[in-house]
Design a protein around this nucleic acid. Structure first.
Length: 584
RNA sequence: GGGGUAGUAGUUCAGCUGGUUAGAACGCCGGCCUGUCAAGCCGGAGGUCGCGGGUUCGAGUCCCGUCUAUCCCGCCA
């Protein structure tokens, strides 16, 4: 095969009169009898080819889209009226001397120029074709750039990249594990890692000091637009640090990534919110700070009103947004339905126009009270208030989701703006009402604040952790903590979570054992790479930044996995499938 | 596990309160055309209306079930 002299995206006026050879796919052909235009495409771009001799035209007529061709010819300038400013190569064209069809393509089952012209089901089945689309290719290139920047940055900071096992051990905490049956040990199973948590802590015990890895993790839980069953973490851990050391490094890493990949300058230090404040002000532990709307405590006002339904509620919160005219009966009703689907009894509202409240529940508030509310809550004319009354937890959570929904409806989010925020001071434990026991808010290895070490055991619900999350534009992009390095405390934390001594020993025994042989203070963080790239790419779907993603039911439509296996394979593993589970 | 939306030609969609032979665009096949750039013009082929059942003289349309995709709740230490 002849050598390619240039790719399809690099020829410019500088190459005029050069003889070149291009390889690529037929992007489109335009036949005009005695002249044929072909756009030849590769990953780097498109170039217009001219066929204008009888033999080339004969060959050109047989071309169809996506045929793979090789063209050699001369680069010529286009006259000014023929320049195509939409193409980087639009100032030139190549007059073909030779055209070779390397491989003909069958008609494609989908358009590669317009992704929206096919259903996602169809696009996933022919993902290798969808990946010819430049938008999707750009996302993968962006992902590549991101990991390159991360590797360089961490390498410069003395981190070393170390791999951890993929066949590992199931643990009782956390998400459901993906299991891999063992042939050699019939009846036993490996688990795929939910994260390399214990391994990276063991690296610190080993004295490796600074570790990172860009690594696949697996969680067998139900999916969302920002969740895949297998996803990639940028995982890192460092020794002899406290929260501020990790956070400083992570801020530098993030701002370096955003600057080098997207040319976006981020201000450091990032703002910080306590978990408590985040819930109170935004009704979420992953608030989108691109819009200023905040929740307000409305209980003291509603208690003075005649609205009985609110008086009996533990908590009433309110958000206020502009553009009251946008909120028609229909839109309000949609929001009410949404609020109810989230567990609220309903969504109350009233509009503020010409210095008084109207509609919704406004009639329960007398004029004096209305004036007090307007001034105390800083209500502007032509705005609307939404209120949810319930337990504090439900009221905040539901209104937090309404806040996001309303911002979406009003287009308050600018995708070119990035607002990072640290969420800190999480509780160490949450009470699991179903199982009547304490559960880690992050995971069992998170250290309590120094002042809370004692109460972590005596009054677990009051202890605050050394955990921290990074939230950007409403997405939890990274989460980490300072870890427990004291063996006794680790043991006690497990016991606080009502794990039996046997369970602790069989699941975590090796790890607790390791802690006693000289464990340095250490901590780290893990980024969701897919979500980070999602933000950088300005898309709101994790599948758009993954080459071969799975559907929301965790199947792969292209290769049709998961799939059944032969009886021989099952026999080897000592596994039988229950009859009623077959063929479904 | 629960709720919403969608499934009709190769692809994306239209198809009204049930009624003759299920339409359009793009793609495909054939023809015309020397300046197009998602080229244009003329002609043609192409359908198990997701699947199963029911109601009806008659179902793409109504009812029940089911499958798939997607969004959300639960879930995701």
């Amino acid at each position: 095969m002849e050598s390619r002299t240039h790719n399809c995206g690099e020829l410019t006026k500088k190459n005029i009169d050069k003889n070149v050879r291009l390889f690529g796919w037929v992007n489109s052909t335009r036949t005009h009898g005695k002249i044929i235009f072909i756009d030849i495409r590769d990953r780097f771009g498109k170039t217009q080819i001219i066929l204008n001799t009888d033999s080339l035209i004969g060959k050109g007529k047989t071309l169809s889209n996506e045929d793979v061709i090789s063209v050699s010819g001369n680069v010529i300038a286009r006259s000014s009226e023929l320049v195509n400013n939409n193409m980087t190569t639009g100032e030139i064209e190549v007059v073909a001397e030779e055209l070779e069809i390397l491989n003909m393509a069958s008609p494609l089952p989908m358009s590669i120029h317009d992704r929206s012209a096919s259903t996602e089901e169809h696009r996933l089945k022919y993902r290798y074709l969808e990946l010819r689309n430049s938008e999707l290719q750009n996302n993968l290139i962006l992902r590549h750039k991101t990991t390159q920047v991360v590797r360089n940055f961490l390498n410069d900071q003395n981190f070393i990249e170390i791999e951890t096992p993929v066949l590992t051990k199931s643990t009782p905490e956390g998400a459901r594990d993906y299991l891999v049956p063992s042939r050699v040990h019939n009846g036993k199973f490996y688990a795929l890692p939910q994260s390399p948590q214990m391994y990276k802590q063991l690296f610190m015990i080993s004295g490796l000091d600074r570790y990172f890895q860009i690594v696949k993790c697996f969680r067998d839980e139900d999916l969302r637009s920002d969740r895949q069953p297998e996803f990639t973490q940028i995982d890192l851990e460092m020794s002899f640090v406290d929260e501020q050391h990790v956070r400083d490094l992570v801020e530098e890493l993030i701002s370096t990534v955003f600057y080098e990949v997207n040319n976006v300058k981020m201000e450091t230090p990032f703002p910080t919110l306590s978990y408590k404040d985040a819930m109170k002000r935004f009704g979420s532990d992953k608030p989108d700070l691109r819009y200023a709307v905040e929740l307000q405590d409305f209980k003291s006002f509603s208690d003075q009103s005649d609205f009985q339904a609110f008086k009996s509620s533990e908590s009433v919160n309110m958000i206020n947004v502009n553009n009251s005219d946008f909120f028609s009966r229909k839109i309000i009703s949609e929001l009410d339905t949404y609020a109810q689907s989230l567990g609220a009894k309903g969504l109350a509202w009233m509009k503020y126009k010409a210095n008084s409240f109207e509609g919704g529940i406004s009639k329960f508030f007398n004029e004096d009270l209305q004036n007090t509310i307007a001034s105390d809550c800083d209500i502007q004319n032509d705005s609307i208030c939404f209120m949810v009354a319930d337990t504090s937890q439900i009221s905040l959570k539901v209104l937090g989701k309404i806040r996001v929904k309303v911002a979406e409806m009003l287009n308050l989010c600018d995708d070119s703006v990035f607002k990072p925020v640290w969420i800190v001071d999480f509780p160490l434990f949450s009470w699991d009402e179903d199982n009547k026991r304490f559960d880690s808010v992050h995971h069992p290895f998170v250290a309590p604040k120094d002042k809370d070490i004692k109460i972590a055991i005596s009054e677990p619900e009051k202890a605050i952790s050394k955990g921290y999350d990074i939230v950007i534009n409403g997405y939890e992009v990274a989460g980490g903590s300072i870890r427990i390095h004291d063996q006794k405390l680790q043991q006690e934390i497990f016991e606080t979570m009502s794990l039996t001594k046997e369970d602790i020993n069989s699941k975590f025994g090796f790890f607790i054992d390791a802690l006693k042989f000289g464990t340095p203070p250490h901590g780290g963080i893990a980024f969701g790479l897919d979500r980070l790239v999602m933000l950088l790419a300005g898309v709101n779907n994790i599948r758009d930044v993954i080459a071969f993603p799975k559907t929301t039911s965790a199947s792969a439509l292209m290769e049709d996995s998961p799939n059944t296996v032969s009886d021989e394979q099952l026999d080897d593993l000592g596994i039988g499938i229950k009859e009623n589970e077959k063929n479904i």
